[in-house]
Design a protein around this nucleic acid. Structure first.
Lengths: 183, 183
DNA sequence: GAGCACACGTGAGAC
DNA sequence: TGTCTCACGTGTGCT
């Protein structure tokens, strides 16, 4: 090889003696670590055509950018999907904000989201309202009066018990005049 | 510097002459490219404490693994969210598979998913079924007969027109005997 | 033989 | 003060 001699140096200049050996070994170790992480990186990054360091780094950068963008897309999409129901839950809390005795949420069914669960759809002038709430006295009147406040003419209502504690309410309304809105 | 001599070499051994110069330059270029991608990578990977190559590669690997796992989580979660409705749509197509005249999907409302739209919930022995479908003759009977085939006792039904072309159906059933299931 | 990619030893700067 | 990290020139193998 070139200069693998243990004790001496060819130039004899510039530095003590055996210390250069430590330098060689340290550098060797550092290089080994680097190469090691290069192979680790190559193993992780998919679709590697060329395996030289430059290509590995380049493809890693490309892949990383791709992943970052995709993460944002998925995250955005995930929040978008829950947006609607979140808004509906907010509206439900507005409607039933001064409910007195509904302290704790009822559980026990195979459902993930807490009651009340409200779903709204619009078609032409019609609004379909599907409500799943705790079985309490007077809820229907409250809801219908709220509909009235919003200038929504009730076309059809259906109330049915679902399980022992829950009430399923379906209401179809129609926008009565031109000044009605869903604030 | 050390050996930047243009035409000669110190050792005088092993290789022609000016060709070594090309070698030096080529190697220089390669190194520059590598370092360039190192800085590019450092710019992309967030939360870099140490900026030396080994640390950059190490943190890149960690960050990459983190991103990959997160991508799977989000993707999985996204499909999970649509899973339920997809299954329900599948079931709906089974129910209405031999429907004759419903060739094209009706549109025109502020809705994203095509009809029929079916939602099912279970609580104790009760099953709540909410269906939004095209307004056709005999759909209710078909659905109720299907309920009967599944040994589901109908407790309550509600059918109401929603818009001009849509029908909102709410059905609450109860598992009749012990041998009933939702295949 | 030209071109490329790599690991090596080595000097120098940084803390 | 050492210790770490880097870029450099160079030899070598592979295509």
């Amino acid at each position: 090889m070139k200069g693998v001699q243990t004790t001496r140096k060819t130039s004899g200049r510039s530095r003590p003696a055996s210390q250069t050996y430590d330098h060689i070994i340290a550098e060797r170790k550092r290089r080994e670590q680097l190469s090691q992480q290069f192979v680790a990186l190559s193993a992780i990054v998919p679709g590697l055509k060329k395996m030289d360091k430059t290509s590995v780094l380049g493809d890693t950068i490309k892949y990383l950018k791709h992943l970052q963008q995709r993460e944002k897309e998925l995250e955005e999409q995930a929040t978008k999907q829950t947006m609607e129901s979140v808004v509906l839950v907010k509206k439900s809390q507005l409607l039933l904000e001064d409910e007195g005795e509904s302290s704790d949420q009822q559980e026990g069914c195979s459902n993930e989201q807490p009651l009340p669960e409200i779903e709204a759809k619009m078609c032409d002038k019609h609004i379909l309202l599907r409500i799943l709430c705790e079985k309490h006295r007077g809820v229907l009147v409250r809801i219908l009066s709220e509909m009235d406040k919003l200038n929504l003419d009730v076309i059809n209502t259906s109330v049915a018990p679902f399980g022992s504690l829950t009430l399923d309410i379906t209401i179809i309304t129609e926008v009565s005049s031109t000044k009605a809105q869903l604030t």
